[in-house]
């Protein structure tokens, strides 16, 4: 592209052999990183270098590399998904950094997200929360009612979509000083609470999902708003408030 600039950087990366062993921050030097590279391409380059030096490459989660699958994580220079907003780590580019920079790369830190290896964490707690109630209990059927039989106000549908845009990456948990998962759970609860199809089970859903969330060992929301800022999809705090409302309603039933 236009630039063609390269930079030399120092990396401080969390290395941990497996879930049981203790880890530590290790330092690496990486030269000739194109500023057009994405952050993960920079890590690819580091791994290529490590493999060529017969050292073990750094394990990190990634898949789609276009900001939608939610698999990539990484706490970069003290921020979830690094020093840019509205993006995932795979969309972070090296032009955000300067020649000679030291970059800290750490895994998500949360009791509910134990480290598997290096920068890879286990986020299946999110799956279990979903399994506890993040669905509409409708079986597959060729005889559901016509999709247009139940009109949904556009504003509700739009808000439900905005909540449903969550990619389940866990940046909210990682960035929250309390390790709270309320933005994730709030988004799921909201998506269904806003749609008539989801309202039927709203009571059970919010109680079950919150119970599971608490069992997983996530912290509590103290409304710092950090999650909203770091969320790559800009999920709003309104969703947490909606969950709080739904939970209150459900608890009083």
């Amino acid at each position: 592209m236009a630039s063609k600039k390269t930079i030399n950087i120092n990396l401080k990366i969390w290395r941990q052999k497996n879930a049981k062993e203790k880890g530590s921050m290790e330092t690496y030097k990486l030269d000739n990183v194109s500023t057009d590279s994405s952050f993960l391409e920079m890590l690819d380059q580091l791994n290529e270098q490590l493999v060529n030096e017969r050292k073990e490459p750094v394990a990190f989660d990634h898949d789609c590399r276009e900001g939608i699958c939610g698999m990539c994580s990484l706490y970069i220079n003290g921020r979830a998904h690094g020093p840019d907003t509205g993006i995932t780590t795979c969309q972070l580019h090296m032009r955000m950094f300067n020649d000679g920079d030291t970059i800290y790369v750490e895994p998500w830190r949360s009791k509910a997200f134990p480290v598997i290896k290096d920068l890879v964490v286990d986020r299946s707690a999110f799956d279990r929360i979903q399994q506890a109630g993040g669905f509409v209990s409708v079986n597959t059927s060729g005889r559901t009612i016509d999709a247009n039989a139940t009109p949904v106000p556009k504003t509700d549908a739009d808000k439900a979509f905005e909540a449903a845009a969550c990619i389940g990456c866990g940046a909210c948990v990682a960035t929250c000083k309390n390790g709270s998962a309320m933005l994730f759970v709030g988004a799921k609860v909201s998506q269904y609470a806003l749609l008539p199809q989801g309202r039927v089970e709203a009571t059970e859903r919010v109680l079950n999902m919150v119970r599971q969330m608490d069992e997983e060992g996530f912290g509590n929301c103290t409304n710092t708003g950090a999650c909203e800022i770091e969320c790559p999809k800009g999920i709003s705090l309104e969703n947490i408030a909606r969950m709080n409302r739904e939970y209150l309603k459900a608890s009083l039933k």
């Binding site: 401080k12 969390w14 921050m25 706490y75 220079n77 003290g78 921020r79 020093p83 800290y104 750490e106 830190r109 949360s110 009791k111 509910a112 960035t175 000083k177 309390n178 390790g179 709270s180 060992g217 996530f218 912290g219 509590n220 103290t222 409304n223 710092t224 708003g225 950090a226 800022i229 770091e230």
Partner: peptide, 26 residues
């Protein structure tokens, strides 16, 4: 509970980038 939710802290943290002083120190 909140402290327990993050047994290992970050080596480098930049909380000022996303939240206010008061909210983090209640």
């Amino acid at each position: 509970q909140n402290k327990k939710a993050r047994p290992i802290g970050y080596a480098k943290s930049n909380p000022a980038a996303n939240s206010g002083f008061a909210s983090r120190n209640m």
